[in-house]
Design a binder for these strands. Structure first.
Lengths: 356, 356
DNA sequence: CAACATAATAAAAACGTTTTCAATAAGGGT
DNA sequence: ACCCTTATTGAAAACGTTTTTATTATGTTG
């Protein structure tokens, strides 16, 4: 075979507008307009060109479109991961977030590109790289800090983005969030109504905005009930299973230990249950545990736990929708939504049980 | 303000090779060569141009590079998700896979783009779309079926890809896999040695290649021990928590029920434990459970379980490495690796316990 | 019937690169 | 002093689009 394959090689090449122009006899301008359904080209030629395109299996080359349009058609998602091995079930909910975003982007020309980050500061660097190098047309990220460097940066550069969570600065930006203040309030109130006076809040990193929201709600429930808030029972740490377990082991060994636990996610909840098991305690009998659940797994814990449940995939869908609308030019102020999770009762709200 | 902003607008535009050409006085050809460190351009001019580029904050526009090079610089990853809400902890390990791939791709120009798929057939469509529309330079995917339409398609089209798992056809393609045959064999052997004669294998969808591998290993252990294989105790279904629970509830109600359970992943394991709890049985006392663990969570189950553990992030890293090498032109036959998970003993291997 | 508006298509420019090829300058050998 | 080689840079083409502008043909109007 001739290594240059002058003829057969050409035949197997992907067709372009130029190819179609040659086969149909029209100019590449008309081809382009016809395929984009421009009103200036006649219905008959449109038909003819479309047919030829179909026959040739023509697909517009995104690289050409991209260069010409000055767009990347990429939605960059910052995905946090923990560094070390032995990470323990961290970030498991991201699959669902991505699924939701993906659903929203279906039908659009946008694709999801993943940028793994270690922490918020690393996230700022990633954001800067994405903006400076023009790697994407917009950004989606979560794990918002009260003072989030990414939000500051992106707002200042006027780069489109949607945040899963709100920071504590009065800036206008598109976001989706869970009403964590309310959820923590409702959980605490429920435990108080169940007779608990010493309640532990297993919380993530204190710089996270929603960690503060949860503390606010936690406090308010005590104040409204006229009880001293359990500030000493707030465990601020990771979202890991290990942290949940360690928190229980620690908190149950201090004087006047907690009898109720409010967990921040499924991972810490699993850890809390593991810690209780190690101490010979059982949720629903010796202590009460209320969880927050993104991925509908609390039903399978032993015992099944009462949770505040909001499928995180739904948030993902909203993120994707807001992303597209933001890219299309809508104002950030119009792209903000707050969700309240559903209370799923799986354990009775027991009254005044003697603390073991 | 003048809506056209003739001057200030220009100043804020991203610099291009043309800009640099103007500021330095060199031609765009020289600029390009200098920045790519071509040997034909003199050291002095290189230095001058690099300085100017740095000062201007020049970053090559990927869209231009992409069009010219005919590459997308995208590594497409097919990410499976279950459709319905109430998905129950499915696909949680993908975060780790992505993290691993991301680590391997660091330093390269490649970015990860996510394509969510519902099942293998949907995956084939996605693969076809990616290939036909030229959305990526290569593909990474998992959940390999014994007869996987994606592998057939991609091999036939000679499109670069790396599979997490092997199909059962004798095709040459890059892959990374876990030795599931061995793992299932070892798990079964251990339970047999512990005195169990009726052992259940909680397996994923039977069309999955690694499901068959596991059955093979499962069988072999019985044969080698001279015991009748428990074909009736193979539960082939999903990877979901629900399936794990339902399997236990079903299997424990048949005559001569299993006393040992071998689980396929953490999700089903959690379900199995939930099912056992509902029946009043405890792992490690009434029955034995051996799990397979991707994400190091089995230590927190109650009780902690003996598992075969292989951090899936490591597989992800290998996938990314193989991807780059495949893209660079290496032969698929050189890009194949099989991993054996580590046995992590958390429960004693008990002898001949009366089945309750 | 000439002038002109309108419709349809074609030509050309642009997006930002990289690469091939041409052009210039400098140096070395005879 | 002249030719030839070599080193360095510049010009131009190409990647595949889309959009702006120009060109032609057609029909309408005074």
């Amino acid at each position: 075979m001739n290594p240059k394959k002058p003829q057969s090689q050409m035949a197997t090449q992907r067709p372009t507008v130029k190819t179609l122009a040659q086969t149909t006899g029209y100019s590449i301008a008309t081809i382009s307009k016809a395929l984009r359904d421009s009103p200036v080209v006649t219905a008959e030629t449109k038909e003819r060109i479309r047919e030829a395109a179909l026959k040739a299996g023509y697909q517009a080359n995104m690289r050409g479109v991209s260069l010409r349009a000055g767009k990347t058609f990429q939605a960059a998602v910052l995905m946090p991961v923990t560094v070390a091995e032995g990470f323990e079930w961290d970030g498991v909910e991201y699959t669902q977030i991505l699924s939701g975003i993906s659903q929203a982007l279906e039908g659009s020309d946008y694709r999801i590109s993943i940028h793994v980050i270690r922490d918020a500061e690393d996230g700022r660097l990633a954001a800067q790289r994405i903006v400076d190098a023009g790697l994407a047309d917009g950004l989606i990220f979560s794990g918002i800090l009260a003072e989030d460097p990414r939000i500051d940066f992106l707002v200042e550069r006027n780069f489109p983005f949607v945040a899963l969570g709100r920071c504590r600065k009065p800036l206008a930006y598109a976001h989706v969030d869970v009403d964590n203040d309310w959820a923590a309030y409702a959980a605490t109130e429920r435990l108080i109504a169940g007779g608990h006076r010493r309640i532990a809040l297993i919380n993530p990193d204190g710089r996270l905005s929603y960690a503060m929201d949860r503390i606010d709600g936690f406090h308010r429930a005590f104040v409204q009930a006229g009880i001293t808030p359990c500030d000493d029972l707030i465990a601020a740490g990771g979202l890991s299973t290990r942290f949940g377990k360690e928190s229980v082991l620690h908190l149950r060994h201090i004087p006047d230990p907690p009898t109720g636990f409010i967990c921040v996610n499924e991972a810490t909840t699993l850890g809390v249950l593991a810690g209780l098991a190690e101490l010979g305690l059982a949720a629903g009998r010796d202590v009460d545990v209320i969880a927050y659940d993104d991925i509908n797994v609390s039903a399978y814990f032993a015992p099944p736990l009462t949770t505040f449940y909001l499928p995180i995939e739904r948030l993902g869908r909203k993120l994707g929708e807001f992303f597209l609308r933001r890219i299309a030019g809508e104002e950030p102020a119009a792209l903000q939504e707050l969700y309240r999770p559903d209370l799923v009762v799986r354990q009775a709200n027991q009254q005044q049980r003697g603390t073991p």
